[in-house]
Design a protein around this nucleic acid. Sequence first.
RNA 1: GGCCCCUUCGUCUAGCGGUUAGGACGUCGGCCUCUCACGUCGAAAACAUGGGUUCAAGUCCCGUAGGGGUCACCA
Length: 473
Amino acid sequence: MSAPVRVRFAPSPTGYLHIGGARTALLNWLWARHTGGTFVLRIEDTDRERSTDEAVRAILDGMRWLGLDWDEGPDIGGRYGPYFQMLRLDIYRAYAEQLVKAGKAYACYCTKEDLDAQREVARAEKRQFLYPGTCRDLPYDPSRRHVIRFRLPKLLEVTFTDLVKGPITRPGSTLQDEVIVRADGVPLYNFGAVVDDVTMEINLVSRGDDHVNNTAIQVLLYEALGYPVPAFAHLPMILGADKTRLSKRHGATSVTAYRDMGFLPEAVVNYLVRLGWSHGDQEIFTMGEMVKHFGYDHVGATAGVFNPDKMVWVNQTWIKSLTPAELARRAVPYYQAAGLAVEGDARLPDVAKAFQERAKTLVDLVAQSRYLFAPVEMDPKAREKFLVPDAAPVLQGIRDGLAASATVDAAGLEKLFHDVAAGRSLGLGKVAQPVRVALTGGTASPGIYDVVLLLGREESLRRLDAALALAAS
RNA sequence: GGCCCCUUCGUCUAGCGGUUAGGACGUCGGCCUCUCACGUCGAAAACAUGGGUUCAAGUCCCGUAGGGGUCACCA
């Protein structure tokens, strides 16, 4: 029996939750849930220049919206806390001292400027720059400003096995005495992450593959610290259409931006999991199905291009699958954002039902159904084509029929429309289209009977009268 | 440039030595139809390249090309 899985997502709070970070978080979460293990959320805020509380909030919000709950981390704590690196400085200091005492790390007094200059020279000579070990054997002088560097052991190469890429080997000659603690005592990424993963007993490190090159030095750090090396799973990057790393240039990259565009969290998660992972031919997954089937053996090794069209399709598929009541509930905030007061409107579920096969996003749903909650905004082209004198008798026929009927229902409307069409030897389209323009202001909508029903008799009559006036002029 | 990783339709992918190379998005056509959608039927569309290994290679090995990543007192 192997130890229970402990995985983590460790974002640095320097911006919003990126779509790529969300996928990393998702896969870790899935593995934890699949195995019954623990999902840890840790905030790597040691870059004080760029870390902000606002970003922490944005990341937590994004995770919650996606439905990725953490078992240990910010807000809820846990027995391996704290879960903010800046609150763990004592821990790093202790481990750093341990390494220095053991001669596995040392104080380096070189200045940043000096090193930059050396790098510059190396570049000019087209030479690879590796720290030459200038301070390697200097006596320790705490009164001088210094960083702590890891003393690279003598070795030929470092090898580790990656769950998605297989064995990865890196020549020792490309490694250097990396700085692990800054002059101000704050650890650098490679050290902080290793110490945290050790002390939090993380046994699988699954992260973006932009970290593969850090892994060798981290493996050495685990060994120097005397701890077992965890398993690694480096997830391929998400690329833009031009095959470069996905960035702002390619459009929205933050999870919240997709929320605001009207994507369902189920759809975002569904799309992201399929970008790099597969389960046969299945495209649509509920969270439960993902948890059940997920495994690193089917995580692909290739970087994937983010395809907005497919994500829209996934979203549309999810919108269709919700019950009308649930869809209506989810749409309310989007109506409000559009300035439409819909709370308490009993038609909402019916509206959702009428539009759920047409809406690509919740924003789209609101836009398409706007005329049900606001005055008609007449499309000039539609008016010009359909609200013409020829259409007046038809509109009048529908108007009168509607006014004469005591109750309105789908069957009655169907009869009315067919009678008016038959009475003038017209196809149904010749009747439905002018009415559609009259009621909605445009040429595309749900079935015309549904529109009348949703609008109600009085409002429909009002709009028909207004259209009649336009058709006559 | 050094090092690391990657390479099946435009895109996401299935494939785990023997397949007419399958599915999905997108595209194009047909059907359905009161519009728009939905649905449905169909079409075009891929194993980067050169060598091996093998009776047999998309599947294994090596090279080449191309792409990505990384080379900080960022993460």
